[in-house]
Design a protein around this nucleic acid. Structure first.
Lengths: 174, 174
DNA sequence: ATTGAAACTTGATCGTT
DNA sequence: AACGATCAAGTTTCAAT
């Protein structure tokens, strides 16, 4: 259960930025020798920081222990939601932004390291002119978080197969 | 912009289930020849269904065009939130479940293929005894969704480096 | 823990059906 | 589009530091 050092972090960032985790690519992006990149990634996997070959992370180990879910109400003209959404997206720690219909305008999910960072998040919300009101709650536990390809774990193949028929073609009368 | 057939779906499911996308592993899991697995995965990438080497998916193309965000209120004794959370997690299409503090008990995010599936989701909520009330809204657009390793894209390396110091060791006085 | 170079495994290519 | 055989490329190992 050792801590991550700058090199681990650099490697993980390089993976996220290059969208690749080939030892070759990460070597080129970081100037860390291939064999060391390999060794470090292996260690991260052994220790469980990287949870599988799909590079899902143990967020706690990365230091992102706090999850904040915010509802955001904004005032905006035609087409401005894109712009406000982009501003929300740019706040450090924000990793999901949904533009919603109904009583709320945006739902934002952020992963943060500390109380300080939570305060900063709220300040950053308030610094956006168009934003009228926000309401945030903490997630005590993330019970489930399937993302990327792994979302598929919770569907029947038939459900998605059926969706293909519906989305592209008219109803076929086989 | 062709549709996905059963083979594409089988390959994607195999990736999600085995947590791996080596042609070798997928070949073993599906009995589809290596070169065909390779060919199909390449096609999925070329067409943008698979968006990068981290296997982030274009959810629209997979048929999961609808995003529903639900707040769920429940009645439960000590330690029962785990159980209810598990029930929520098991509903087809649910891919994020947060147990929250404050006015709501759970926040659930589901990705669905059709209106029918939305109705089914709500019915499934209601079929859970402990659940008192739910409130769902649709996301019109997913403006940002960084998940897995890619969450790192929105942090300064220093932020996470600092978090390491805090989480594991006492303050060092270098 | 780090590294360069060697050994090997795998993914990518090619030509055929 | 599917596939088996071939080859290039990248990954993993190894021994030294």
């Amino acid at each position: 259960m050792s801590t991550l050092d700058r090199r681990d972090i650099d490697i993980l960032f390089a993976i996220a930025e290059t969208n690749s985790f080939s030892t070759e690519t990460i070597h080129e992006a970081t100037d860390i020798p291939k064999s060391t990149v390999h060794y470090r990634i292996q260690s991260l996997k052994d220790e469980g920081v990287v949870e599988n070959d799909l590079f899902e992370l143990d967020r706690e180990r990365i230091g992102l222990a706090i999850t904040v879910i915010s509802e955001v109400w904004a005032e905006y003209g035609e087409g401005y939601h894109e712009e406000i959404g982009t501003k929300l997206s740019a706040i450090e720690g924000v990793n999901q932004v949904y533009f919603t219909m109904g009583d709320t305008d945006f739902v934002v999910i952020a992963r943060l390291t500390s109380r300080d960072m939570v305060e900063r998040l709220v300040e950053d919300y308030e610094s956006i002119d168009e934003i009228r009101r926000t309401s945030s709650k903490f997630a005590i536990t993330t019970i489930k978080e399937d993302v990327g390809v792994s979302v598929l774990r919770n569907y029947e193949p038939e459900t998605l197969l059926a969706a293909q028929g519906i989305s592209e073609e008219s109803v076929s009368e086989e």
